[in-house]
Simulated scan of single mutants.
Amino acid sequence: MPGRPDADDFPHAAGNPARGALRAAGCTRLTQLTALTAAEVLALHGVGPKAIRVLREALAAEGLSFAGE
């Protein structure tokens, strides 16, 4: 969905509530999550353990991780 103002590159498996929470927090790119800890992301309303797992796997696939991991 390039061109849409709410577009992001987070995996769809993370779920729409989690993706929306990340966008609302100003994150639209997976690489931006490297500046945040998993606990900080988990604290966002709409982000649960499944989303953290999915995001962690997506980060790892790119050779990245949450801050402090």
Rank of each mutant, 00 (worst) to 15 (best):
M1W: 06
G3A: 11
R4T: 12
D6W: 08
A7I: 04
D8E: 05
D8G: 10
D9H: 09
H12Y: 07
A14W: 00
A14L: 02
A14E: 00
A14R: 03
G15C: 01
G15N: 06
P17L: 02
A18V: 03
R19M: 06
R19F: 06
R19L: 01
A21K: 04
A24V: 04
G26F: 01
G26R: 03
G26N: 05
C27W: 04
T28I: 10
R29P: 00
R29F: 00
L30T: 08
T31E: 13
T31R: 13
Q32Y: 00
Q32L: 05
Q32M: 11
L33V: 08
L33R: 06
T34N: 06
A35H: 09
A35K: 11
L36H: 15
A39G: 12
V41K: 07
L42T: 01
L44Q: 08
L44N: 07
H45M: 08
G46R: 08
G46L: 05
V47A: 09
G48P: 06
G48W: 01
A51D: 05
R53C: 05
R53L: 13
R53P: 00
R53N: 09
R53F: 02
V54F: 01
V54C: 04
L55N: 10
R56N: 13
R56T: 15
E57H: 10
E57T: 12
E57F: 00
A60E: 12
A60I: 05
A60K: 12
A61P: 01
L64I: 03
S65M: 12
S65W: 09
A67Q: 13
A67F: 09
A67V: 02
G68K: 13
G68L: 10
E69A: 15
E69T: 15
